[in-house]
Computed example of a mutant assay.
Amino acid sequence: MDKTVKLVGFKAFDGMKKMYPDYNFPYFNCSYNALLTLGEYYQKNTLSILCNPISIYRIDSTDKFKYEVTEFNKKEELLEELGIKTNSQPIMIDALREQITSCILDGNPIRIKIDLFYQNGREFYFGKKHGLHPVLVHGYDPSRDNIYIVDDISEYTEYCVPFTEFLEYFTENEAITDNSITQYVLKHSHSSNINEKVIQNFVSNLLLLESELFDSISNILQLADIYPFALKHEDLIETLSSTIYRKCSERYRLLKLLNLNNDSNSIKNSIIKKMDQVLDDWLLLRALSIKAIYTRNYGKKLIDNSRIILHRISKLEREYHILFYSLIHNFNFNFSAEQEFYH
């Protein structure tokens, strides 16, 4: 086989880029980007994927702040409901090219987990720390020995990588226990109208989490208290960046859901405005923090300004949640807009 094999029509999920043209933010995390990419490739209704993750503000036992992603259902269950099955086989390094080519010829994309420690271009990981990460493979060019992947090295898009470089992403990492190829196979092509069921489940889950979500906002105030110490933590900028793109993900889903909601536009506009104010403040805090870290200036003025921003974020988050929960207690959806979630 000396011809390039590549899945026709396979492309990275770009919904976030349509909302933020300057950068294709991940949807909550790299795993959900992959799920949405697969769902769109197989022309499935992706609403169940969009509504599965939720983020909660946490402070762990070491006083480390994070905007943690949790999920209502296992990712494998989401794919099974969409008729997408997974077949796994052990990676055989000497025959990996043939394994990949065989899957692609069958019309099936592949997931392979790599170690970000070895992937050049990873600002927070390369040569610094280990981290498992799923890469979608959708083509191979034997004449140039290049592999086609969908990944988020700089932004979520397609990359053409020398195969020898790709091997370095995972073969040296003893921490990778799932040393396998996962092949995604379409088992049935019919798509039922699932919006109503998905939204009902989403609303039910959010109502169960209502107290926890409101209580978690107090962790933003705790971050304000410990901010002088947080500023000196090496992961702070990464944490703030992930918080920002997870808020962007919430905004993306919010707009999708509000498009199905028949309630007053004034309520919708107020909710979006609060969300945007929260985002603007997280962006401002990150900018101040980057400046402080690079100039090594941790003076009182910067700390006071950072704490003012965090207190404002906490207030805005509470106001946003009050508005949002007032809406979801009486969701009024137009399910004739089903097609919206297929593209």
Rank of each mutant, 00 (worst) to 15 (best):
Y184V: 04
F166C: 07
S154I: 10
I100A: 00
Q89L: 15
K247R: 15
S204K: 12
L207F: 03
F166Y: 06
Y27H: 01
N73E: 13
G39Y: 03
I54V: 11
I147W: 04
L240C: 02
Y325Q: 09
K128Y: 11
E340M: 15
E174H: 12
R253F: 03
Q200H: 11
Y169G: 00
L283I: 09
E340G: 06
A292Y: 01
S270I: 03
N87G: 01
Q119W: 01
T243G: 05
T62K: 14
N334C: 10
I181D: 03
A337M: 08
V278N: 14
D152Y: 06
F214K: 08
N87C: 02
E196R: 14
P228G: 08
N146E: 13
R312F: 02
F166M: 04
G83P: 10
H343Y: 10
G131S: 04
I49E: 04
S241W: 11
V150S: 15
T86M: 13
A12N: 02
I308L: 15
N261R: 00
V161Q: 11
S264M: 05
I176N: 14
S211Q: 14
V278M: 14
Y140A: 04
D304A: 11
F10P: 04
S218D: 12
D106M: 06
E319C: 00
K129W: 08
T37S: 15
L36E: 00
S264A: 02
G15A: 01
E98Q: 13
S55I: 01
I244S: 00
L231F: 00
K66M: 15
L35H: 05
I237N: 08
N24E: 03
I199F: 09
I110C: 01
D276H: 04
D145A: 10
N334L: 03
E174T: 15
S289H: 08
K74W: 08
Y42L: 07
T243V: 02
L260R: 08
D63T: 05
K300R: 08
E174Q: 14
F166G: 00
A292N: 06
E71R: 13
H133C: 07
E250F: 14
F333L: 13
D151F: 06
S180M: 12
K6W: 00
